[in-house]
């Protein structure tokens, strides 16, 4: 564990907590894409399949449970909670996210480190996470203005993988044989997809106004 990875995990945790805070306290998911949340639930479900078979550390297992629990409960809130469900913008959240799942699965079957069930699904989760934010970014452009909490959520979610890239650079130079091209390229693509959001975020958010 290094400071970059810890910062990345805390940023990721913060993004999830901000979203849960928004949905649970003000009972609203306005501006939040259910499709992105569903993709993230699939990402964690396919990435943490080894949660009971390979123990790394208490921290690792705890964080996996937090990410699994929060992503599925956010989907549940947005789909079934009567008050929250009413604030979901169904008409605008129309990105065909299932069109993202299949190509990622095919790519994982073609490009992976080992051809085993767990490894292919784990690789699939990396590819899917790289594009999972697309429905949310499309919704963001359609709804123009979003509230601060949603803006913070997207900012933290985009930032965590950027911190992971610093972690990979650090580990590459400090650990022999630490080479994971698939993880690195997927992580880079994922972070680059946030580039224009970050641009507007810094323009607007830091200026004290909402993200437009």
């Amino acid at each position: 564990m290094n400071i970059f990875r810890l910062a990345g995990d805390m940023t990721h945790l913060a993004s999830v907590l901000v979203l849960l805070l928004k949905i649970h306290t003000i009972k609203s998911c306005a501006g939040v894409s259910l499709r992105t949340q569903e993709l993230y639930a699939i990402v964690f479900a396919t990435r943490y399949l080894d949660i009971f078979t390979s123990f790394v550390s208490v921290y690792n297992t705890f964080m996996k449970l937090v990410f699994l629990g929060s992503s599925f409960s956010i989907v549940w809130y947005m789909r079934y909670h009567k008050a929250v469900h009413r604030t979901y913008d169904r008409e605008q959240d129309t990105f065909r996210h299932w069109f993202l799942v299949l190509p990622c699965l095919v790519l994982a079957l073609l490009i992976h480190e080992k051809f085993t069930f767990l490894e292919v699904l784990w690789t699939f989760s990396l590819y899917l996470e790289a594009v999972a934010i697309l429905p949310q970014l499309v919704l963001l452009q359609r709804t123009r203005n979003i509230d601060n909490l949603t803006g913070q959520y997207i900012f933290l979610l985009g930032g965590y993988r950027g911190l992971y890239i610093l972690n990979w650079i650090y580990r590459y130079f400090t650990e022999p044989h630490f080479v994971h091209w698939i993880t690195w390229i997927a992580g880079l693509v994922q972070t680059l997809l946030y580039a224009d959001f970050f641009y507007y975020y810094f323009l607007r958010f830091i200026g004290g106004r909402g993200v437009e």
Partner: peptide, 10 residues
């Protein structure tokens, strides 16, 4: 092989 290293990242 590097991939034998446990997946210690989230």
């Amino acid at each position: 092989r590097p991939s034998m290293i446990k997946k210690d990242e989230l």
